[in-house]
Design a protein around this nucleic acid. Structure first.
Lengths: 124, 124
DNA sequence: ATTAGTGTACCAATGATTTAATACAATAAT
DNA sequence: ATTATTGTATTAAATCATTGGTACACTAAT
């Protein structure tokens, strides 16, 4: 849960993506309680207001649920989480492939670059 | 040269990426004259000031050159352009692969998703 | 010479994001 | 009962991106 932020996009959007990623990858378990707004703000080094903003948006998508003053919880719906994981992956693949096509790379070249990268990573 | 902008990132940053993409992919030829700031603004439907901002940043990287009041020109250095194309591609592949790993996908799964996408595209 | 088009610069206004600083009601823990 | 913690809401200030408007100097075309 080490989050870093860039200044080219709104922090609350980046935070949403980090949390979504942690939920769909299982780093944060379904049904688990989220750290408090203040605690998350402290961890991330940002204002509680910004965390609240991100949380508010994520409740609208149903990924988080607020139980009054007890705290916020990750949804229990594993099917929904897995669907979201698939959707995120497909979107990412589509965006990536389209970008590479715009750069003039064929599917074969993309696959080669990917394989090279993975091979390089494994060597370290 | 059909550009659309989202509101989650600064327009001048998105414009920079569009122009970079057009240059490295050859859509805009090396040594060619760029449309004027006012013309680009009109085409993109944004303020000339925002275009100027993007252009200024791209001159600092050497991709564009300003010839006084004659206009702005794309660099003639094809080697530099090709190097930038390779760098952009490698960065994109690395970011994409890291994102997919964070979502819990293996290299094999990524390759499968890519192949499926490409196959689907070809069917239409 | 005049005109049009170029890059460049500046200023003011607007909107979005972020932050700090509070405040309040409800629940959990003691 | 009291205290601490929770979500939630509000206000004000600061920063940045964006836009509209204007202006100036220089070059090319007429």
């Amino acid at each position: 849960m080490s989050w870093t932020f860039t200044n080219d996009r709104a922090i609350y959007l980046q935070l949403m993506e980090y949390i979504e990623r942690d939920i769909v990858s299982g780093t944060m378990a379904p049904g688990a309680r989220m750290p408090s707004v203040r605690e998350l703000a402290s961890i991330a080094g940002i204002s509680p207001n910004t965390v609240q903003r991100a949380m508010y948006e994520m409740e609208r998508t149903g990924l988080l649920l607020s139980r009054g003053t007890e705290g916020k919880y990750i949804t229990d719906d594993r099917a929904r989480i897995d669907t979201m994981r698939q959707d995120l992956a497909r979107q990412k693949v589509a965006d990536f492939y389209q970008d590479m096509q715009h750069l003039g790379f064929t599917l074969d070249e993309v696959e080669t670059l990917l394989a090279e990268l993975a091979a390089g990573k494994n060597r370290e």
